[in-house]
């Protein structure tokens, strides 16, 4: 599992330029992404992101994890686990932006 993931990371680095760190998706899309994270990621990670079937995605939980590999987890999912790939719905830049928000603490007015 871990080896497979490391490989994925390597492959991704080789194939694509390293994922751009959190380029601004624009205000409208940012709102959509925050809603996506709260609601649809929330169905497994909890709406407050403190965990559910999937682990907590709070700043404390993610602080020491490399952003690039988290970004790839979002894009590709983790085969063999319940974490699905979100590549059909978010771009690489958007996934990187989500990771940045998660590591900093998701802010929104919706709560």
């Amino acid at each position: 599992m871990q080896a497979a993931e490391a490989l994925l990371v390597l492959v991704a680095f080789a194939l694509a330029a390293p994922v751009t760190a959190g380029a601004d998706p624009g205000a409208e899309r940012e709102r959509e992404l925050v809603a996506l994270v709260r609601q649809d990621c929330g169905s497994c990670h909890g709406m407050t992101l403190k965990g559910g079937l999937g682990p907590a995605l709070t700043p404390e939980a993610l602080r020491d994890k490399p952003a690039d590999s988290l970004t790839l987890t979002i894009l590709n999912g983790r085969p063999g686990t319940a974490m699905p790939p979100w590549r059909p719905f978010v771009s690489e830049a958007e996934a990187a932006w989500i990771v940045e928000q998660l590591q900093r603490g998701l802010r929104d007015g919706a709560h």
């Binding site: 649809d40 169905s43 699905p84």
Partner: peptide, 8 residues
């Protein structure tokens, strides 16, 4: 083919 599951 096994499709991804976005909600249990």
């Amino acid at each position: 083919e096994r499709l991804p599951v976005y909600k249990m």
